[in-house]
Structure formats: C-alpha cells, structure tokens
Design a protein around this nucleic acid. Structure first.
Lengths: 192, 192, 192, 192
DNA sequence: GAATAAGCGAGACGGTACGTCCCGTCTTAGC
DNA sequence: GCTAAGACGGGACGTACCGTCTCGCTTATTC
C-alpha cells in the first residue's frame, strides 16, 4: 500500500544541481551570497523547486555540507595505511589548514553561526568530530598513564592553536614547523 | 599639525545615540534586527549619518560592543592590583568568554574576513594584541628558564583552545573549570 | 501567435489600483506628491510591482490620466450623433482644455521631452493624432475649394493658439468664447 | 545711518558664477538637474552662499533667466534697423525657433510650471511679452481697419502654431517656409 | 486510453532593507 | 559679515531577496 506516491516523482538530478550550486555560492560568497534566489538561478531551477525540498536556504546548506563530506573520507585512507601516526596526522593537517577553501568554509560557518547555528553544528558533527576521533587515536599511543591531563584537553589545545592562527591571525603561517611545535608540546603534556 | 578639519564637526552625541540603539537592537533581536534602517529609526537619526561613520552595520556593531564592555579594562584593573596573576587572568577570561555578545562579534568578524579582512585585522590589533601582551606578562612570572617551549606557543594553545570551544563548539562551556584546566596545563609546559 | 507568455500573468486589478492611486495623488498633491513611494503605499502595492509596469511615475501618470478621461471618447460621441460639427468640436475642446489635469500632463510631457522624447511622441501618436484627424473632418465640411490655405495649417493655428494659452499663459482663459473666436477665424481662412 | 551694512560685502562676482552655473544646468538637465547642490558644486560655491541670496533654486532660476535675456535685446536690434517688418520678423523667428536651446528652455519651463509657475511667468513677462509687442508692431502696419479680427488673436494663432510645432511635434520643421505660410495666413486674416 | 496528481520553470506579488542622492537647515574655521 | 566645508534629519530613489502565489506544461500513476 505504501508504494510510490502519486503524481510525477521528483527528479533526483535536480537535488544534485541545487546542492552543487548552493555549495559553490556558499564557498564563493558566504551565507549572504547563498540565498535561494541566486541558488535557483545558478542551478537553473525555479525557486519553488527549492522551497518544495527544503524549508530554508540554511536547511539546504546543511544537507549540502553533509553530502560534500562523503567525498573524501580521510578515515578510510588512514585505515588502509596501517593506522594513524604523528607524521600522518601532520600530513593531514598541513594539507587541510593550508587550503584557503577550508579556511573560507569554516570562517563562513562561524560567521553565520549566530543566526544559523545548525550549519556549524552539522559541520562539527559530520566533519570535525570524526577527525577529532582520529587525532585522539593518533595521540593515544604511548601516553603516560600517570600524566596529569585528559587527552581531550590536549586536543583542544593543539587544534585550537592551529585554528586560532588560521582563522584569527591568517598572516602567521600554520605550516609544518608550527604544527610540529604544537604536537611536540602535546607530547610533553602526555608524557610520550 | 593639520589642525581642525573644515566644516561642521561631527556631533559626538550622535555617535552615542547610534551605538546605543545598535546595541539595544542587537541584544533584543540579534544581528538580523540590528540593520541600519532600524538603528537609524530608533536613534532618531538619518541613515546617512550612520553611513558617514561606519561602512556597515557589522562594523558599527563591533565598535558598539567594544565600547559597551562593562568590564573594567584589564590593564587598569591589573595595574591597580599589583600586577597580573593567574587568578585575575581567569577572572577576565570568564567574563569575556562567557558574554554571548563577545562571541557574536568575533564570529561575525571571522565570517566577514574573507571579503573584508581589515575588520578582523583592526580588531586583532586593537583588541586582541594588547590583551595577549597582558597574558604573556601574567604567565611570564616564575617560568622555568630551562623549559622546552616558547611562551607564545603556550599562549596560542591556551587562547586557541578557549576560542575553539567558544566559536566552534559553543555547546561545551568555556567556564572557569575549563579555563583552569587550560592554565594548569600551560603552567606544566612552562615549568611553573 | 506567440501564445501566453510563461509565468504567472500580471493581475489586471493591480493596474487599476495603481493608476487610481496615482491619479488621486496627482490631483491632490501635484506631480511632486505622485511619487512611486506614495503611490505604492496608497495602492497597497509593492514598489516593484509599479516598476514592472512603468519605467517612471511620469509614464504611469500619462497612462493613468489617459485612462481616466471621464469624457466619452469623441470618436464614439460623434459617430452616434451623425458626425462632427463645430459645436461638438468646441464641446470637446472646452472639456479637455479646461481640465487642469490635462494641462499638467501635457506640460510634464513637454518638459521631459528633451531627455525622453518617446513619452511625448507616444502621447502625440496615441492621443493627439487621432483627435487631429477628427478635427480635420469637422472643419472639412463646406470648405471653399478655392481657399488659399491647406487645412492642416489652419488646424495648427487653431490648436496651437489654444495650447499656447493653456501651456504658456495659463492665466488667460481657454474658454468657449476664446475657442469660438479661433474657430471663427479658421472658418474665415477656409472660406466656410 | 543708511550707509554700508557692516561686515564684508557680498561679492557680486559670486552672483555671476552662481547664475551662470544655474542656467547651464537648467538648459542641460532641466529643473531636476538644476538643484542647489549641483549648482553650488559647479559654481565652486557653498550651498549656504546660494541660500543667502535666493530662497530656493526656483527663485534663482527666475533671476538667472531674467538676466540672460538682457544679453541679446532684439528690440534694440530692430530699432537700429528702421523698425520691424515681416521679413525681419521671420528672420528673428527662424533664428530663435531653430535653436534647440531655445526649445529646451521653454520646454523645461512649461514642464516645471505645474510645481513652479513663477519660472514660466517670469519668462513670459520678461521675454515673451516684449517680443509679442514687437510682433504686434510688425503686423499692425497696413491692417484693414474693417477686418473681422483683433490682432492679438492672430498673434496667438501664428505664435501658437509655431510653438506647437516646436514643442509638441519637434519632428516637423519650423522652418522659414512654414513660418512664411503662417504669416501669409495672418495677413489674410488681417486684410493686409 | 483518460483522468488525476504532482513536479517543474517562469515570473507576479506584498514586503523589508539596502546604499545613494538631494533637500533645506545648522554649525564650524578662516578671512 | 561672509566664505567654504560639511554634518544633520528627512524623504524618495531604484534594486535585491524574501517567501508565497499562480500560470502553462510535463511526467508518472491510477482507474
């Protein structure tokens, strides 16, 4: 009885077009630029077609970001390469933090988080949390069990310092040398 | 000595009216409600009068919030109390980082930094840098000269972790307990 | 036969609302008061809705006034009454030239003709030319075929004189007596 | 006691600059363009300087137009040349009516006469009335005293026809041939 | 095969805010 | 006193998006 609903079914390709356009505009121009009017125009789609699927441009962006994450799953990469290590951790960070697009996305998300907290929340849950878990695995090996610190605080300090530089003081480099310093201090705290 | 510029000078009282109205609207209705049109109406002021002073409502809000800080400026506080200390450092942080308006401003600045980097730069130079200097003074006392770390990296890690929580994971509290943990780890790194 | 254009068709009732409001404001407050902002507000309509239909309040007023002519269209009147005559000609003129709104429109059109000649041209072709044709018919009856004049020049002189008074010397009346004088001279020239 | 008023006297050259700028802007861009702001800028003068001398841009334009008239006093020209005649009448008309600037001024004046009737009134009294008087003199010679017409009506018809062409139907030429036709018909009416 | 229902692009619609322009008034410094 | 400069409250401008709506057409399912 459930069966197909009556009438013409939605075209799944249209979903793709819309989310692609939404993401492009968001990266290029931020939340302001990623409004329904422009997304519709870029996707070659009627506004109604968007409103039929998502209640707001925010909801659309959330899903678009969710979807985009699945494209490059780093976790898998690491699994194929005999687990994480400090070296691989820094390889990953250098790539990510050096990418201006990465900075742009995170900056836009933070900027819009006052009015649209769901965007940032989605990103955090879908993107940041898994990576954090991997970082924890990488740092967990050889920790002094007596160390006067919980590992999450150390991660906060390392990741926080790196993001602080990238977001707040983009003039200062977040290069491998700097990241190495941070990891070195993390290891000191962890007694590794 | 160029002397007074020609023409009728700007009325400083008008600055007050505008920033007061902007702040009220921001607190009552958020960023969306604090637009130039409404600020002008509430302040009883022409829109042009606002545009003459600030390039956007965002920039206006930055200054309004900066000005509205009810906290006594840390510099003075410290000077009057025989220098900084870990306790006073944390008092100051708890006040600042616990203020949702502070978060909102910094988030907006980061969000707009792709298109308008000057806003963030100004804020960093005018606001963050002096405070960083004070933090360095607070942490410098009793540092182990043999410690395997430079103090700026430690500041990055402490401040970075605090801001990371506030900006990226606002669900987790940046309360005194958490800040105390950070300062404790900083002291471990510095051999204090 | 291009068929119906795509998209939601314009609501003809909205046209009515706008032109009604425009006319009211024009009559009440003159050209200055009949601006787009006020017309939109009085008509309960968005400004864009007006701009979609007319390029300026001026163009809107032209059409509104044209439409609002309470005079029964001369063509019909004459057809129903066995053709034009000097009397009916003057009836029509007295009504038209005595209407301050008619003067206002024509004055505005002439004033804007340096920068926007099309407005005046449209008005001339759509409004004036057909009426001129009727005047020619009215004057053609009983013309002395030997008269040393072409009828269009006579029309120029009669219409020109009437409009000259109305436009340039609005203090002097363009009343029935004056128009009668003009028609009388026209008849002398035409040998009627 | 009358004496000079105290303080620095007004610079009469400034009056010239202002009126010159006002007239230029009026001819180029019409009433809209001839606002105090632009006049002040073009004349290199403060707005206050204008408002001190004239209550409005309208009043300024009135005086500017009055003054401009005195530059080429046609009456005098005729006086020096042994009085007006049909030929000289037409010479004068051909020059005037063929000048696009003349058309522009009159069109602008008529266009603005709804809101600012004084402008047109001044022009009529200062410029048109004297010329009309001269035309009357030119046509008065040799009039049939028995003619069934008063001369002012004939002038209305001739001048009206010429202006009608120039203002309302600028596509049709107001050339010497056409003006000759008009004068010929005027002479017929006057029994000359 | 026809009827029905929903998808779809297009674009009208009432709103709100934008940033600019000009209004006429005012307040300053300098001559 | 008078100038140039420019701030000020006010109001209109024309444009951009908002979210809703109405249209003709298309596409799939159901009867």
């Amino acid at each position: 009885m459930t069966g197909r609903s009556r009438g013409r079914p939605r075209d799944p390709q249209v979903d793709d077009l819309i989310m692609k356009a939404a993401l492009e505009l968001f990266v290029e121009q931020g939340v302001e630029g990623a409004n329904v009017e422009r997304i519709a125009k870029r996707a070659g789609v009627a506004k109604v077609t968007i409103y039929r699927r998502w209640p707001s441009s925010e909801a659309l962006l959330v899903q678009a970001l969710e979807r985009a994450r699945t494209v490059v799953p780093e976790e898998r990469l690491w699994a194929e390469n005999a687990g994480p290590s400090d070296e691989r951790l820094m390889d990953s960070w250098v790539t990510t933090l050096g990418d201006p697009r990465y900075r742009a996305v995170l900056a836009q998300l933070i900027g819009s988080s006052t009015s649209h907290p769901d965007l940032l929340a989605t990103y955090r849950e879908q993107y940041l949390r898994p990576r954090r878990r991997l970082v924890r695995e990488a740092l967990a090996a050889g920790v002094d069990p007596e160390a006067d610190v919980d590992i999450d605080t150390v991660i906060d300090m390392v990741v926080g310092a790196a993001l602080y530089r990238m977001l707040v003081d983009p003039g200062e480099p977040s290069d491998r040398d700097y990241l190495a310093k941070l990891v070195h201090q993390a290891n000191r705290l962890l007694g590794r």
